[in-house]
Design a protein around this nucleic acid. Sequence first.
DNA 1: CTGATGGTTGGGAACGTGCACACACGGCGT
DNA 2: ACGCCGTGTGTGCACGTTCCCAACCATCAG
Lengths: 343, 343
Amino acid sequence: MTMNNAGGRRRAPTIHDVAREAGVSRGTVSRVLNGGHYVSPAAQEAVNAAIRKTGYVVNRHARSLITGRSDSVGFLLTEPQERFFEDPNFNVLLRGCTQALAAHDIPLLLMLAGTEDERRRITRYITAGHVDGVLLVSSHSGDPIAEELREAGVPLVACGKPIGLRSRVSYVAADDRDGARDMVRHLLSLGRRRIGVVTGPLDTPGGVERLAGYKEVLTEAGVAIDERLVVSGDYSRASGEAGAERLLARTPDLDAVFVASDLMAQGVLTALERAGRRVPDDVSVGGFDDSPAALASRPELTTIRQPWDRISAEMVRVLLAQIGGEDAAAVILPTELVKREST
Amino acid sequence: MTMNNAGGRRRAPTIHDVAREAGVSRGTVSRVLNGGHYVSPAAQEAVNAAIRKTGYVVNRHARSLITGRSDSVGFLLTEPQERFFEDPNFNVLLRGCTQALAAHDIPLLLMLAGTEDERRRITRYITAGHVDGVLLVSSHSGDPIAEELREAGVPLVACGKPIGLRSRVSYVAADDRDGARDMVRHLLSLGRRRIGVVTGPLDTPGGVERLAGYKEVLTEAGVAIDERLVVSGDYSRASGEAGAERLLARTPDLDAVFVASDLMAQGVLTALERAGRRVPDDVSVGGFDDSPAALASRPELTTIRQPWDRISAEMVRVLLAQIGGEDAAAVILPTELVKREST
DNA sequence: CTGATGGTTGGGAACGTGCACACACGGCGT
DNA sequence: ACGCCGTGTGTGCACGTTCCCAACCATCAG
């Protein structure tokens, strides 16, 4: 009798409308919606039919009001956004998280904390309970915001191992050390012995771990560690170029370079080319990340693939578990050696 | 008297707590929160003090329930996400929108409609009123989802001009035609007369407009249009390379190429180098977009900058206006010629 | 002195949902 | 015959906010 589909603004159907349509009470509809326990098959079917007919969609605001949950999570990126935004892996991570959450019908709120003001605003927003949990991607891995949120009781999962924090913070990370070991083993298997390394920043776990893996494998293989073969960069292309130049100056006899990121490896290739070294004939170059930069390089980079799709999936899984009441957890995922032209 | 800051889960302060603290009624607090009309300065001050003291944050769910608004907007990306996710401009756009919205204290929900299933789910979510409006970024500019949402009464702003739609859809776009005109004028000013063009897909407004600008300027300058100088690509690097080869084969005397995207321009540079043409001495090359690819190229690309930061800001402005009840609007933003090494 | 005006305030109702509770029903054991 | 239990169902209440209306106060015109 009511002209539902008529033009203009029409009131969205409520759980009450569905109940009336199905000839049951609100409570029964609610039970069908959340699990369907203690409902007769007949009622179940009637409710489902009524939902289809009315086009009912649960009002999340009303639900959130009563349950206290928001059924949404925040994706929080802190501080120097430039680096992450440049990094295509960031996109893969963001997309992976969004899709993994979508499978649970949970929307993702993008939160960028660049300035101190934004940081405060977002912290307030989160601690006010407007999201059930937070996926944290922070540039420097000891971001105090993680601790702040944890102490406020907010479920949180970091991407990459956080360091220097008192509280236990869940995280998901790739096995940096093992990835580095794989690459250096690969270089050794090619007969290389004078293997240089351009590390990442040594105040980050990734930088430290990848260097540790390098040293471990060399030591195991009986190759002495030559500190002149070790230089460090900051993951930028320019620092890779500078690093390679320093290596060439100090140890002209090097026959391979393990570079802690693909972007830096591009810089290394540039420097080697300028120095007249052929890659991979004279010098083998191995990167890290398997970013699109690895494929765009000439020659294409042999590199260590970080399993970004699995990382995002695990971050979501761990976060949802934590929202469900489980304890903090750490997940380390295996990397994979991708052989291309540069070795 | 209540130990507010004690450890453990503590109930978030409500508007009622603030009212009691300030010695006024809920209604007064609410009025202070939304605009502050019809409140005495004294009450205003008392309420603000109480808010600061209690650390009160409005419960958006309760507010949304009664107002019908959600105070959030969706950022919707449809279909082949690969291209957009590869495109660094996408990141700039996403960041710009997030920040512009943050200034209004409006969260951004990221929604990716890859599969048909996701599309349906997201459409339901949106039409259910869980977001106040949608910022749409679609690969092919006639996406029917725009029309679908518009007809459901959802405020929406597209990035780039939508075509082939019956309803009026707001959009914000760069002035493609004018950008193309600038570039071709620049090439003419260098004395070039045999100017080839590698267009974008001609079923998109961008592709059409940039080609139109090219032809307009040549005609104005009295240079006859030679259709052998016109080839089309699909914005990919490979299609740029193939396009340049076709041009070189058909019109070996060309002295400049206007390429409708920087990525394609990279391909053009590769093809020219292989053919032994020096850039910019023998052939000038102009790109479009001012993507990071333009800076990464050798030589660095002269290109047309799309004002992505302004585009995102305008998209948000137009969307909020539309949510506020204003009509659909179209915004065209000026581009800018960026001179670098390739011309 | 009365009544109208306009700024300011308080209290009730409503938004749509989930949850606790009460209750109906049939089968079973005492 | 009675009470119990487990399953299935309906109803009242609460969540925190905004909106509406009535009431209040001071001012001022009549």
